[in-house]
Nucleic acid binder design. Sequence first.
DNA 1: GCCAACGTTGGC
DNA 2: GCCAACGTTGGC
Length: 137
Amino acid sequence: MAKRLWLMKSEPEAYSFDRLVKEGRTIWDGVRNYRARNNLQAMQVGDEAFFYHSVSDKEIVGIVRIVAAGLADPKDDTGTWAAVEIEPVRKLAHPVSLAAIKAEPSLAEVELLKLSRLSVAEIRPDEWKKICAMAGG
DNA sequence: GCCAACGTTGGC
DNA sequence: GCCAACGTTGGC
């Protein structure tokens, strides 16, 4: 199974990338949107994701790796919602801002832009490479 | 099953 | 703080 690439959003005031680095790993739960849940359920161990700070920062700040997939949301009794466990891979040398993504024509189709309220989005490999290049490699 | 009203999220 | 976009709920 080829590795897939994702983007996970969080308000830095709620859960920041720095906090993830400090804690080492975390369960990513609390997603209450079906499309986002479908993305969560499609994740495999070893997949990587951008970590995006919404609202106050509006930039991709780091990369995380999926270390456990297909978990049930521990806060959900009904079995409806999913969760994964993630660990930090690295912080980006240069965060990639929402404005920079919008300004880049090859990134116009990124799910982040098209569905701004989706908390878990998929990133295509070419988009991933482009954003990595913008972050300084 | 449709659609209007409402709530939430997130960019500006 | 405002508003647009989207999802959900509830009346019919």
